[in-house]
Design a binder for these strands. Structure first.
Length: 514
RNA sequence: GGCGCCGUACCCAAGUGGUUAAGGGAGCAGUCUGCAAAACUGCGAUGCAGCGGUUCGACCCCGCUCGGCGCCUCCA
């Protein structure tokens, strides 16, 4: 039985969907005005995994993830560049798909945009005004927090406490300092839509209420996002939605922890973030492998805990994955004793049960991965006893199937280097995966940071083609056959210096990897 | 000022009021190997920031202290 930690109640609760066999979930997406960083990746990944696991356990999942495509930051960016807001949002939605695609994050069932839901938004605002929960001031509409009694229940805050800590100057036109905008009248040159209050655009929070209600209904199962959205975003969503419908809005609120750098939250304002694309571009490994390394790293920690991003953690993820893919490689090789066969299924069963138990416990991916490690170890032992072709196929399939919940183990071949065909090898120095401590987004001014190579321990990238390597390997095995071990070792050393590792098999042939 | 989180071995990281405190990475030793690599085996916290308290018993509950962080403003 799946249980989920609910931010609203602060407790683990058994999960029961509103409609049997169907889960309706909504995740707050991104404001599309810049490239995504790993923090965005974590959030997207957490909900991707939740969705995958729910499907794995037999639910049909209706998953909505929005794009915020009308916003101050978008307008600002468009003005800076002298282009339309549409051009900005189109560019960064495209970039979003590219970045998230490289991480193996599946698209949601529905990915609505705020600009395409103006009618629903306006209608919702009207309802709130009619119900006396919102008021208009000169073309702006505000939600009146004092009129919504449970306000603060998600973030566990009292209105008085919020006021006391308010760091922002108060708009005198508001009836209460914490009242927030549902509709903003537009200034010159800003995108605007006709409304009963004149031309304007929606406030940030209202779009999610409008879109989630439209696509998932007035009450749905799961809603989530990063922890920083708890207040004010989700608090306000609850006020708007429950205020308008009079019904329960969301049954389980899920919030993921932050990605940090050097123990600090990674954020735009601190300038200490890593853009997803920069990591891919600077990675010495191929895209698919890099994506899997990132996933493994991000899922190695429970989703509600903070986790520190560094080259070192990425390298650890890679080393851990090596173990799995080394096994998968051996599972593909022929060798047909079936001595260990009868013990395989019990081992797999044990793993399946433990894996589900872990995931059922508030999506404990960390433990789930540990269980896969245990199975890896079990299968390794059985393999040395001998597994039949069929048994090896079953074992590989099991890793693929359980791994699919986490988006891991789907690659056929795990390799560490791209192979530019026809290039000659030279001993170019290792290029670090991440060149700079800080990655500048396009709106950041370059700072004179000392470049800090972060992956110095990695091996140099190989520049041989597969065929070139195979020729060398064949040559070495010929030498071994002749007992010319001096030559054989020379070849091994040569390839090793180019990041290629040879593993001799008992039958006199060798496998190699980069 | 208000609300809240975290501190587990060299590193990452689970976890439970009471069997030997998961798992991974790195390291060391051994088996295997022509040599390696991989795999396998063994080694590694008598202790879970510190100090008190509750309890028959706490790393897990409570309090205090130290250290780190987050939200209260756009933020995944």
């Amino acid at each position: 039985m799946l249980s989920i930690y609910n931010t609203l109640t602060g407790k683990n609760e058994p999960f029961e969907s509103l409609v049997p066999k169907i889960v309706r979930m909504y995740a707050c997406g991104v404001t599309v005005y810049d490239y995504c960083h790993i923090g965005h990746a974590r959030s997207a990944l957490v909900f991707d995994v939740i969705r995958r696991y729910l499907e794995f356990t037999g639910y049909q999942v209706e998953f909505v993830k929005n794009f915020t495509d009308v916003d101050d930051k978008i307008i600002k960016r468009a003005n800076e560049r002298g282009v339309s807001c549409d051009a900005i949002t189109a560019e960064f939605i495209e970039a979003y798909y590219q970045d998230m695609g490289r991480l193996g994050i599946r698209r949601a069932t529905i990915e609505p945009k705020a600009t395409e839901h103006m009618a629903e938004i306006i209608e919702l605002v009207q309802t709130l005004i009619q119900k006396g929960l919102a008021y208009e001031v000169a073309g702006d509409v505000y939600f009146q927090v004092e009129k919504y009694q449970p306000y603060g229940s998600l973030s566990k805050r009292k209105l008085e406490d919020l006021q006391a800590g308010a760091r922002v100057e108060v708009d005198e036109r508001k009836r209460h300092p914490m009242d927030f905008a549902l509709w903003k009248s537009s200034k010159q040159g800003e995108p605007s839509w006709e409304s009963p209050w004149g031309p304007g655009r929606p406030g940030w929070h209202i779009e999610c209420s409008a879109m989630s209600i439209k696509h998932l209904g007035e009450t749905f199962d799961i809603h989530g996002g990063g922890m920083d959205l708890i207040f004010p975003h989700h608090e306000n969503e609850i006020a708007q939605s429950c205020g308008a419908t009079g019904k329960e809005f969301v049954r389980y609120w899920i919030h993921n922890g932050f990605v940090q750098v050097n123990q600090e939250k990674m954020s735009k304002s601190l300038g200490n973030f890593f853009a997803i694309r920069e990591i891919f571009e600077k990675s010495r490994w191929p895209e698919a492998e890099t994506g899997e390394m990132l996933r493994y790293f991000l899922l190695g920690t429970h989703y509600r805990s903070p986790l520190d991003f560094s080259d070192h953690s990425l390298l650890e993820a890679k080393n851990a994955l090596n173990g799995f893919y080394d096994l998968f490689t051996r599972l593909k090789e022929s060798e047909d004793r079936g001595t260990g066969d009868k013990e395989l299924m019990p081992a797999i069963e044990r793993c399946k049960v433990a894996f589900r138990e872990a995931m059922d416990d508030d999506f404990n991916t960390s433990v789930a991965i540990a269980e896969l490690q245990r199975l890896k170890s079990d299968v390794n032992k059985l393999l040395s006893q001998g597994l039949s072709t069929e048994a090896r196929r079953i074992a590989r399939e099991e890793f693929r199937s359980l791994g699919n919940c986490l988006g891991l183990f789907q690659l056929d071949k795990w390799q560490f280097s791209q192979v530019p065909v026809g290039q000659t090898a030279d001993l170019s120095p290792a290029s670090p995966i991440i060149m700079r401590q800080k990655v500048m987004m396009i709106d950041q001014v370059e700072e004179a940071d000392t470049p800090q190579p972060m992956l110095s321990a990695a091996k140099p990238k190989s520049e041989f083609s597969d065929t070139q390597v195979q020729l060398k390997v064949d040559e070495r095995n010929e030498a071994r056959k002749q007992k010319d071990f001096k030559k054989a070792d020379e070849i091994r050393r040569f390839l090793s210096s180019h990041g290629i590792v040879i593993e001799d098999k008992p039958d006199g042939t060798s496998r190699w990897k980069r």
